[in-house]
Nucleic acid binder design. Structure first.
Lengths: 330, 330
DNA sequence: CTGTTAGCGCATTCAG
DNA sequence: CTGAATGCGCTAACAG
């Protein structure tokens, strides 16, 4: 069913049908009504592919996520896609997976589908390979990064101050009288590096020496990872009284280990996670967590994206402040 | 950058460039190499929109989800999109939201984008409005439903036996000596109706009268919903010794309430959730849960979908068996 | 107000 | 082996 089919039925030209479909002026009201009726009756749906080819706007926005199953990535993805949908845009959500080649492949695919803008979810996209790929494949398309930034003229970044946030976590534990604080951190993404830096800055500001700091890094971002690491950490540091984990899910695993070892939380040991995810409310005791504003970041990006699409200018780099949500573990 | 630009540079015709891009035979190896070099050098990416228009295959599959944030929907979505990506297809993931109009709008949009197949995630899509919309907008396109089915020639359903699964949960609790079993169920989707039926069947098989059954329905699918309902249920049924919840997240809330009321789990009361989601491993004690095979369903759909796209036939309706994963609450 | 024409970028005949 | 011509479905400019 094309506009030509409709045109023939209605006894008018294709242009007239096109005008009616798009609600353009300059059509006799009677003609318009007749055509519209036929359109409804046939359940005509315009072919967006053909439309995109001629107008060269696809009304498509690409969203790249390493893995949509990641709790703290899905919120932003959801919000952005809903907001764009409301503006008549479709979201092409691509699960790129973990490797640089896959990320580059994703960017190439966005160019292939002629997206009008791209969103990259997660600091993991802050890499040289991605920067090169954007320069090569998407040099003219606005690219928005959630919790990341690349120094390119068409890249916009919305980041949360995770470094400062973790520093605040350290200060909080210090105020609670904690003296032997551990930091457990997952794979070394740009984000987790910032978190680690925040831990180091916070601790050294309190007078601790860099070499005395206790950091367990490269931990698997799962319950199991947190559990195993905590088990080990207790053995190695029987005097520990505070733990900061780079992910809520790791903290959940750590809580399991602490319970098994009959260490009371928050009596003997305080625990803080990061992300303020649903997990934090489910575990026992409920987990205190650093809210790194993934929802806010998503909302900010959605609005900046729409501004950009509609021709308004917007600043390239935004920093959001974090805050600690205290629950039962501190 | 189009094939014409490349053709001019290379001193050949667009047809030849097209042949090289698509790896078609009938090109002089020397010519092919020269063109390929230019292609690489320019970072040429074919315009999939134009390609789709002429070949009338979009290499696009639409995935409709009410809300990607729902834990037990994201697994299948992820798996399907990854599998399709590996086959060279793109996934157009649409968050349709909760209303029938939005679901119909989503289906319309899939037709507009000329998807080659559609996947509907969740039993909520099993409705008259959706059936009508498929008949109207996607009568020729294979439609796969995860945990749902519609009696249309182009619809394929992969369902898990949730009714039987809940019946087994009842039996399990009975074997554990539980006599006063409650059922807490969220909003009345086709899926939760089946679960409820399973509860009724299981209980009546044990000799309970329909009117004696204790069912709390229409509960908000959240921790809060489970918590509030459990609080109420304890008051109203001080002798309860078993609870089955239609969602893990509800069971998590219920566990909170039971702990607050100093009811020991599983000492005094056994609890079973449904979905076998990550939540089940996080709460304390770890939650026994009915695994309704969302991952398996996703995998099955992905494979059937690819079979279908490649012209192989596949049965329209598949039922997967469920099984109970016992953890600390039973 | 309406119809005719051209062309978006590409794959695919069909000639050469 | 290669190129010219055609059309996918649509919008936009132009002419009537």
């Amino acid at each position: 069913m094309t506009i030509y089919d409709i045109a023939r039925e209605a006894g008018v030209s294709a242009s007239t049908v096109s005008r009616v479909v798009n609600g353009k002026p300059g059509v006799n009201p009677r003609t318009r009504m007749k055509v519209q009726e036929l359109l409804d009756q046939c359940g005509y749906v315009p072919n967006e592919t053909a439309r995109g080819l001629v107008t060269s706007n696809s009304r498509l926005v690409g969203i790249l996520v390493a893995d949509v199953r990641t709790q703290h990535h899905i919120e932003g993805t959801y919000y952005i896609s809903r907001e764009l949908m409301a503006q008549g845009y479709c979201s092409l959500i691509l699960n790129t997976g973990g490797s640089d080649e896959e990320r580059v492949g994703g960017i190439r695919m966005l160019e292939q589908r002629k997206v009008e803008a791209a969103v990259l979810i997660g600091s993991i996209f802050q890499s040289d390979a991605v920067e090169k790929a954007i320069g090569r494949y998407l040099p003219e398309v606005p690219v928005f990064m959630l919790n990341g930034f690349l120094n390119l003229p068409n890249v916009y970044g919305v980041l949360s101050d995770e470094r400062g946030g973790v520093e605040n976590c350290v200060r909080l534990l210090e105020r609670k009288g904690r003296r032997r604080i551990l930091f457990i951190v997952d794979a070394p993404t740009p984000s987790s590096k910032l978190k680690t830096q925040g831990f180091i800055d916070g601790m050294t500001a309190l007078g601790y020496k860099r070499k005395d700091l206790c950091i367990y890094s490269g931990v698997e971002g799962s319950i199991r990872g947190g559990y195993m690491t905590m088990k080990k950490a207790i053995k190695e540091n029987p005097d520990l009284d505070g733990v900061i984990c780079s992910l809520d899910i790791i903290a959940c695993g750590a809580l399991h280990a602490l319970r098994e070892e009959h260490v009371s939380v928050p009596g003997q040991v305080s625990v803080i996670g990061i992300d303020n995810s649903p997990y934090a409310e489910i575990c026992t005791p409920q987990l205190s967590s650093l809210d790194n504003m993934t929802l806010d970041s998503g909302m900010t990006i959605a609005h900046k994206l729409i501004d950009c699409l509609e021709g308004r200018t917007t600043n390239q780099r935004t920093l959001l402040y974090t805050n600690i949500v205290e629950r039962g573990t501190t």
